[in-house]
Design a protein around this nucleic acid. Structure first.
Lengths: 236, 236
DNA sequence: CGCGCGAATATGTCTATACATATTGAACCC
DNA sequence: GGGTTCAATATGTATAGACATATTCGCGCG
C-alpha cells in the first residue's frame, strides 16, 4: 500500500487550506499561480485548478484573472447566524453606535472552563455596554485567550471594542452559539435600563481558530429590542 | 452578444438542481448517468462530471460507483441552526416525547402576512404543546399553506405532529429564523406551567420550497429549559 | 440451489491541450 | 504628460483520452 487514501487535488486543497486557517498565509496574501503550483506538485494545471476552484467556492481565496489568487479577508460571516459584529449591525440600521467599557483587566483562569480557554496563560477580561441610538443595546462579557491571541495584549480597545477587534484581526474557523432566554438579574437590569426579571435574549459564543480556543463571550439583549435573524437559502 | 453569461457545466448544474428542488426528481430518484448527460448536452464527460461533482459536494445528490447518481434524501439539516424537529431532539436526549394538539382547523387567510403564505387557498392552523419527560417543553403555533402542500389536507397529525410531518414530506430550500426573548403572556404561562412574565425563548420560522412559502411557525420555549445551540465548523 | 468469480458499468481522478477572457503594465503616440 | 493600445499573464472553461476503483449483475461451477 503506497498511495495515500487522499487524492492529489484534495491534498493540494488541504495543504493550502491549512496555510490559510493557521494564519501562515494572512488575508491578502498572494498564493502561487497555478503554473507555480503545478511545478511544485508535479501535476497538470487541471489538478491544481480543481483544488483552487474549490477553495474559491468555499470562500477561502479570491481569484482574479491576470492578478492571481489571494487569501480572502475573513468573511464577516458565511451567511450563517448573523450576530458577530454588533457595531456593524447597528451602524447598518443608521443608528449611532458607542461601546462603553465598564471593566477591563487581565488575570489567570479561575475555573476549569476558563482554564480550557486560557491554556496556561492569562486571560483578558472585559465587560462593556453596546449603545445604539443612545440607548443600551447589549451587555457583553468577554474573555480573550492571550495564548491564542498574544497581540491582543497591546490592542487599543478604547478605539475598537474587543468583539470588532477580534473579528478584524483573528479569523475564526469554528464557533458555537448558545442561545437562550433569561430573566434580567438586578445588575443587568440596571445597566440595560430595564425592570428586574425582564426577558433577555442571551447569546453565548465560543470561538476557535484551527482547534485552538480564542474567545468566549456572553451578550445579553433586551428581548423586545432585538431579533436574531438567521436565514438559510440556496447556496448561491 | 450570443453566449449566455453562464457556463455549460453551470447550466447543467442549475437545471438539475431545479429538478431536485422543485420536486420533479424526488429523493431517491436516479439521475441519468454521466454518459447519458453528455449525450443530452452534447459535451464531454468532464463537463458533466464537474456539474455532478458540485451537486454531490453540495449534498443534493449521492453518487455511487457502478450504481449511479441519486437525489439525496432531504438533509434533515445542513449543520446549521439545529431546531427543526423537536421530537427527534427530545428523543435523542432519552426523554419521552408527546405532542398534545390543542387546536386544529382550516380557514382562509386573515391578514396580509397570512395571505402571502396562503396564496389564495386555505391555511391549516395548529396549536399544540410539545411535552418532554412529562413536562411542557414548547408551545407551538403553526400555519401550513395548502397551496404549497395540498397533501397536508389528508395527513393524520394525530400520529405525527405537523412539524415532523412537514420535515419528512416536504424538503425545504429556504428558511428564516427569527429568535427573540419575550415575557410569558398569561395563556402561554398557563400552558407552559410558568409564572406570568417568565422569560421565554421565541423562535419564529418561515419556510419556503423553491421560492414558494410553505409554513410559518412560532415556538415558545421556557427560557431556562432550553438552549439553542448552533455550531459552525470546518466544511468537512 | 447457492456461491463465488469475472465482466460490465458508472463514477473518480488525472493528463495534455486548446481557446476564451479579464486585467495589468508598459510601450507608444499625440 | 496623459491617454490609448497592445501584449503578457493568470485564470476560466472545455475537450478527449486514459487508467483506477467500487459495485452490481449474471453466469457457471460445484
Amino acid at each position: 500500500m503506497s498511495a495515500p487514501q487522499t487524492t492529489l487535488s484534495q491534498r493540494i486543497r488541504d495543504e493550502i487550506e491549512g496555510l490559510i486557517r493557521s494564519g501562515v498565509w494572512p488575508p491578502g496574501h498572494k498564493a502561487p499561480s497555478e503554473a507555480e503550483l503545478m511545478a511544485q506538485y508535479g501535476c497538470s494545471r487541471m489538478t491544481v485548478n480543481k483544488a483552487m476552484s474549490a477553495l474559491a467556492e468555499a470562500g477561502l481565496i479570491v481569484r482574479r484573472r491576470r492578478a492571481g489568487s489571494f487569501v480572502a479577508r475573513p468573511r464577516v460571516h458565511s451567511a450563517v447566524l448573523d450576530i458577530p459584529d454588533i457595531q456593524a449591525q447597528v451602524l447598518a440600521r443608521g443608528e449611532t453606535y458607542a461601546f462603553v467599557m465598564l471593566d477591563e483587566g487581565r488575570r489567570a483562569a479561575e475555573s476549569d472552563e476558563e482554564a480550557e480557554l486560557a491554556r496556561g496563560q492569562d486571560l483578558l477580561v472585559f465587560r462593556g455596554l453596546h449603545v445604539a441610538a443612545g440607548r443600551p443595546f447589549a451587555l457583553e462579557d468577554r474573555l480573550i485567550a492571550l495564548a491564542a491571541v498574544p497581540e491582543a495584549a497591546d490592542a487599543d480597545f478604547a478605539s475598537e471594542p474587543p468583539g470588532a477587534w477580534l473579528l478584524h484581526h483573528v479569523p475564526w474557523t469554528e464557533a458555537e452559539n448558545r442561545i437562550s432566554a433569561v430573566g434580567a438579574e438586578p445588575e443587568a437590569a440596571r445597566l440595560l435600563a430595564l425592570d428586574e426579571g425582564a426577558a433577555l435574549l442571551a447569546v453565548e459564543r465560543r470561538t476557535w481558530r484551527a482547534g485552538e480556543p480564542v474567545t468566549w463571550v456572553r451578550q445579553l439583549f433586551p428581548g423586545e429590542a432585538y431579533d436574531l435573524v438567521a436565514r438559510f437559502g440556496p447556496a448561491r
